[in-house]
Design a protein around this nucleic acid. Structure first.
Lengths: 136, 136
DNA sequence: ATAGCTGCAAATGCTTTGCAAGGCC
DNA sequence: GGCCTTGCAAAGCATTTGCAGCTAT
């Protein structure tokens, strides 16, 4: 999912979130570039390095609001922290253990050719594939 | 990975962990049946329902020791809790959101037909696939 | 004006740890 | 006996929440 001409303000308006100073700073960092993977902590650091002064609680709240609004996707790769991905399209991930870093895998690079049967009354809400890489 | 004739005592001896009352109770619950998925909490409840009285701290420590010893595998499906799987072979999972339950998918039911390139100096330490199911 | 946001500090929930007492070889 | 284990309570982390004050519309 690309948002090549999007800007922070438009993102917020699209999902009816007030464009506050804090949310604008966060949205700018997240959506001006593509395929970003952040945790609350890494984003907090980035924001504050720009001098934007946003509290960690607000970072958490904003990441959750953005996720609920469909601007972000949560990625579960590590039980100790929550990653968020600005790429909300269908794709998978490589997780680099030592670097604690995530990288996207396009749907062409990794293909799932069969899925299990879906039980009555259920539906598949997502398929998460994580290739774990570590130093050789 | 099947351990059809295994018993709790043998498991512990195999990995050189002293067969204490607590570890035996836990191993019995985990390895007498196949393909069990537990969290520290669910296991704690089960153990205590049998009247075995094992502290939660010991459950945590034991699960970690078993995992380190290769008797269990950690499954990352939910950022709020850690699941452990007695099936240590290559396979994948279905996670049922409402039930907070895990189910194995055999390698035949879900096939990955292409993997991304492995960078220099790295290796794939595991591929985790979780199909998330929820009520329709 | 007022509903919505933010920040702080406190609370939460899962997991780990320090240490004294007890158990296994 | 001596080392390993256990249990408790306390500590640790990541994350959430209550609430008083501030802000966007």
């Amino acid at each position: 999912m690309n948002r090549p001409y999007s800007n922070a303000l438009k993102c917020l308006q699209d999902v009816s979130l007030r464009p506050t100073r804090q949310r604008l700073a966060i949205a700018k960092l997240l959506f001006d570039e593509e395929d970003r993977h952040v945790t609350a902590e890494t984003l907090h650091q980035e924001v504050n390095e720009l001098g934007a002064k946003v509290s960690l609680a607000t970072i958490y709240n904003t990441l959750n609001q953005f996720t609920e609004a469909g601007l972000l996707k949560e990625v579960i790769v590590d039980s100790n922290r929550t990653y968020f991905d600005t790429n909300i399209g269908d794709h998978h991930h490589i997780y680099f253990k030592e670097e604690e870093a995530l990288k996207d895998i396009s749907s062409e690079e990794l293909v799932i050719s069969a899925l299990p049967e879906v039980p009555e009354g259920k539906k598949i809400s997502g398929v998460s594939v994580v290739v774990h890489m570590e130093d050789d």
